[in-house]
Simulated assay, not measured.
Amino acid sequence: MRIVGLGFLARSIRTIADAHPEAVAFAAGVSSGDGADHAEFTREATLLYDTVECCRRTGRQLLYFSTASAGMYGIQRRAGREDGPVRPASPYGRHKLAMEEVIRNSGADHLILRLAYPVGAAQRPHQFLPSLVGQVRRGRVRIHRGARRDLIDVGHAVTLIGALLRRGVSREVVNVASGWAVPVEDIVAHIERRLAVAADHEVTDVPPQDPVCTDRLRRLVPAAAELGFGPGYYRHVIDAYLAAVPPSGRP
C-alpha cells in the first residue's frame, strides 16, 4: 500500500500496508472537523487530484478518508446512511463531500470511508478526545450540549478497513463507526471519573445530533459484531487512550 500523508491516520494504517500492495491510501487531508482554512482545503484538493489521476492511470484502488460526522450528515433526525441524503453543516463537511464527488467521477477504482472519531495514543492535541482530556486536566472544559460523538478505537477502524480491502469492496461509500453516538457530556463525565477531576463546565446548547448507520459496514464485514461495539464501548476507548497517554500528553 502506498500511503499519502504523515499524520495520525497515515501512521495507523501502516500495519496493513504490506497486505494490500495495490491500494493507495489518501490520509493527507485536513485533520480537524473545525477547520475552515481555505489554504488547507486547497492543499488537500490539489494533492488529491494528482493522486486520483495516478490511480486512474495505474489501475490501483484509491482509499479515501472522508467523515461520518455531523459536518457531513447534518441534523436529519435519522441515522446517517451512505445512500441517503447528506446536509453538510460545516466547511469541512462540504469540502469532504466535494472530494468524494471528484473521486466518484474520476473513473478511478476507489473506496470512500466515512470515518467516525478514531482514537489512539498518537493523536495530535487539537483532535477531539485529546483536546477534551487536556481541558479536563486543566480544570475547565467546553461542552456543546446536544452534540454526540461516535468514538472508535483506531486499531478497530484499521481492522475493519483491512477486512473491506480483503473482501475486494470497490466503488462504495462505507461508514466506519461503532454505530453508537454518545452525548459529549457523558464522554466528559467518564474522563473526569477516570482522572478524578471535577472540571468547571462551560456549556453551550446545540441542536441534537444523530448517529450514523453501520448496516452496510456490518453486512460487508460481519466480524464487526465481534469488536465489542455497544452503548458502553466508548468507555473502553477512553480508558485505553488514558492508559497509553500519561499526563504529559505524550504516548
Rank of each mutant, 00 (worst) to 15 (best):
G7E: 05
L9W: 12
A10K: 03
R14D: 06
T15Q: 09
T15E: 12
I16P: 01
H20E: 09
H20V: 08
A25P: 03
G29W: 11
V30P: 14
V30N: 03
S32C: 02
G35C: 15
A36L: 00
A45R: 15
L48N: 07
Y49C: 13
T51F: 10
C54A: 11
C54N: 05
R57T: 12
G59D: 04
L62P: 08
L63K: 04
L63Y: 07
F65P: 05
S66G: 08
S66P: 08
T67I: 02
S69Q: 04
S69F: 03
Y73P: 04
I75H: 12
Q76A: 12
R77M: 03
R77C: 07
A79M: 09
P85Q: 12
P85H: 08
V86A: 13
R87V: 09
R87D: 14
R87K: 04
S90M: 02
R94N: 05
R94D: 03
R94M: 11
R94Y: 03
H95L: 05
L97P: 01
A98G: 06
V102T: 07
N105H: 11
S106M: 13
G107C: 02
H110P: 03
I112M: 06
L115H: 02
L115T: 15
Y117R: 02
G120I: 08
H126D: 13
L129N: 10
P130L: 07
L132D: 01
V133C: 12
G134C: 07
G139W: 04
G139T: 07
V141E: 02
I143L: 05
R145Y: 00
A147M: 00
R148Y: 00
R148D: 01
G155S: 13
H156A: 13
T159S: 14
R166G: 15
S170K: 14
S170R: 15
R171Q: 13
N175A: 09
N175P: 07
V176I: 15
V176H: 05
S178R: 02
G179E: 14
A181K: 01
V182I: 15
V184C: 01
D186I: 00
I187L: 10
V188C: 01
E192Q: 13
A198C: 08
A199Q: 05
A199P: 10
A199E: 05
E202D: 15
V203G: 02
V206H: 00
Q209V: 00
D210F: 01
L217Y: 11
R219M: 06
P222M: 07
A225I: 04
A225L: 11
L227H: 09
F229V: 13
F229S: 10
P231L: 05
Y233K: 08
Y234M: 06
H236C: 09
D239C: 12
L242N: 05
L242R: 04
A244Y: 07
R250N: 06
R250Q: 12
